[in-house]
Design a protein around this nucleic acid. Structure first.
Length: 535
RNA sequence: GCGGGUGUAGCUCAGUGGCUAGAGCGUCACGUUGCCAACGUGAAUGUCGUCGGUUCGAAUCCGAUCACCCGCUCCA
């Protein structure tokens, strides 16, 4: 299935448009059209209903170690800047880079070291990637640049020990790590993966804040509030749906990697001894959810991260990946990540930013031996009322992309088949086979022809169904064309008023996938449609 | 960020310097029509991605720029 056809249908039918299209578009931003917004709302609502509102906290679900509670939350997009420092996003997403105009390579500004070298009357600041072998690398680079042979090595005159490139103001005499001539490095440019803004009237750095790059941190910083206000015991899951922002360098593949996107996240807090079982539970539960929503087993894989991909405190991370049409054959794109995060996040917000590389986890210190980023100092731990045990809960994080899920459902729904026309000739048909729960329009109502009182009856049915479902009325053109139009929109049911309706108050209800029609009473329509959607 | 490709009607595309920029599909109106993209008649729709240049004349040639697609790179 080609991605072009899906992108084309999305625009034509009103699922997705490029943001600000009339001004030429903006890379990495997309708008949902009339059908798209209904689809995405249904994706989010299905997730919220299945994970939160319809959660059964009395019984033990299949595969779960015990019953658990579930609550929702809706936090702000802009949060206290210290949140991102303690979470690690500030360090991770806040790099200065220099580009080499000659070799087109890009380097982290703070990861290049170099020293001043003179020979044959010339001087240059010779650089190399920071590391144990940097002195040797700088020597080799200098020999090549100054064209000095090994026997004349003493011609090279060093001025001082290697220092970081950040110490050098003027880059005109700097030799890039792979360049042949000096002065090829651009001025350092900030590659901030977080969008920056300013809070308050002052636009100075003291007012600087960031648009959240993930929704998770809002849950961590509210963990205590939720516990205190609900009187829940652990295990407890807290769910949130909301926009996040990442200034991706290369947005690509339609909405798959966007700069503004929506996440559906759960932070699940539990006792450390049970965390592994809960990790297993959430992996299986989330996998099953996509299957229920219509993603077939062979197009969705669960990929366990290898040990070297894992942070050491994590027991595991698994990606649920879908076979998107834009991926190469046999490759998959991430829909959701389920990670075991240990107590890293809560402890970081208590004590300060922890060093992910330390084992056991220790506070990350700056060059003066003080905490690099101070935490809140608040007690975010948990005390079990029954046993009296105090501990910092471990966290399992199923983090899904709402836009990625929506895109996967769009790709999965797109189907071309052949159906006979009125003369029995096979005609190509494009049909979006959404799960009825996800379909933007649940039913369309048609008069068979635009006369004999049929439109009046059909409109009455339409208005009645509209109280419960998103429905569509159409009386224009031939009946076959109207059916096909609804097939493209993914409407699962079409209700047609015909001559017989006027005599016995029955209509036909047509199934999108099988084309079969069933004659039913008008009174039963609401119930029948609801039953079929829930089935 | 680099390299390649693309950009003309709502969609798919034709149009290689010259008359008022075209086709198919779709859309709309009227008529006809009794169950799967029907038919007839009529109609609307374009700053030819944007900006600039060359030229008597540019959708067409040149430059820049924006967006999308592919491959790298980067990120995770």
């Amino acid at each position: 299935m080609s991605m072009e056809k899906i992108v084309s249908l999305c625009k034509q039918c009103g699922f997705l448009f490029q943001s600000s299209e009339i001004y030429g578009g903006l890379q990495g931003f997309w708008d949902y059209g009339p059908l798209g917004v209904e689809l995405k709302r249904n994706v989010k609502e299905s997730w919220w209903r299945d994970m939160v509102t319809c959660h059964d906290d009395m019984s033990t679900l299949d595969g779960a170690p015990s019953p658990y509670s579930m609550e929702g939350l809706d936090c702000t997009i802009i949060m206290h800047p210290q949140v991102w420092k303690c979470s690690g996003h500030y360090d991770l997403f806040h790099d200065y880079m220099v580009d080499c105009k000659e070799t087109k390579k890009r380097y982290r500004h703070d990861q290049l070291n170099g020293r001043w070298v003179s020979a044959k009357g010339k001087t240059a600041f010779v650089t190399a990637p920071a590391g144990d072998d940097e002195v040797e690398l700088i020597k080799k680079r200098a020999m090549k640049y100054f064209n000095v042979r090994a026997k004349n090595i003493d011609d090279l005159v060093y001025d001082g020990d290697p220092v970081c490139l950040t110490e050098i103001q003027d880059l005109a005499e700097v030799l890039g790590p792979d360049a042949k001539t000096i002065g090829t490095l651009t001025e350092p440019r900030e590659f901030n993966l977080m969008f920056k803004t300013y809070v308050g009237a002052l636009s100075g750095e003291e007012g600087a804040a960031f648009l959240r790059p993930e929704t998770a941190q809002g849950i961590f910083v509210n963990f205590k509030n939720v516990l205190d206000s609900t009187r829940h015991k652990l295990p407890l899951g807290i769910a949130q749906i909301g926009k996040s922002f990442r200034n991706e360098i290369t947005p690509r593949n339609f909405t798959f990697r966007s700069r503004e996107f929506e996440q559906m996240e759960i932070e699940f807090f539990c006792h450390p001894d049970e965390s592994q079982k809960w990790y297993q539970f959430w992996r299986d539960r989330r996998m099953a959810w996509y299957h229920e929503m219509g993603i077939p087993e062979d197009r969705l894989i669960l990929r366990e991260h290898t040990p070297d991909e894992l942070a050491h405190y994590s027991i595991g991370t698994a990606d649920l990946e879908y076979a998107f049409p834009f991926m190469a054959a046999g490759e998959f794109g991430e829909l959701e990540g389920i990670s075991h995060r240990g107590d890293f996040d809560l402890r970081s917000h208590i004590e300060g930013k922890l060093d992910e590389k330390s084992n056991p986890l220790e506070l990350q210190l700056d060059e003066h031996g003080k905490p690099k980023w101070k935490g809140s100092g608040k007690n975010l731990g948990y005390r079990d009322e029954l046993t009296g045990e105090k501990y910092i809960p471990h966290v399992i994080e199923p983090s899904a992309g709402a836009d990625r899920a929506t895109l996967a459902f769009l790709c999965e729904a797109y189907t071309e088949d052949e159906q006979p026309d009125e003369n029995g000739n096979m005609q190509k048909r494009v049909v979006m086979k959404f799960h009825p729960r996800l379909a933007p329009i649940k039913a369309a109502v048609f008069p068979l022809v635009k006369k004999d009182g049929m439109p009046e009856v059909a409109k009455e049915i339409y208005l009645n169904l509209k109280k419960q479902f998103k429905v569509f009325y159409d009386e224009k053109g031939a009946i076959g064309r109207r059916y096909r139009r609804q097939d493209e929109a993914g409407t699962p049911y079409c209700i047609t008023v015909d001559g017989q309706t006027l005599e016995d108050q029955t209509v036909t209800i047509r199934d999108r996938d099988t084309l079969e029609q069933q004659r039913v009473n008008i009174d039963e329509l609401r119930e029948i449609i609801q039953c079929r959607i829930d089935a």
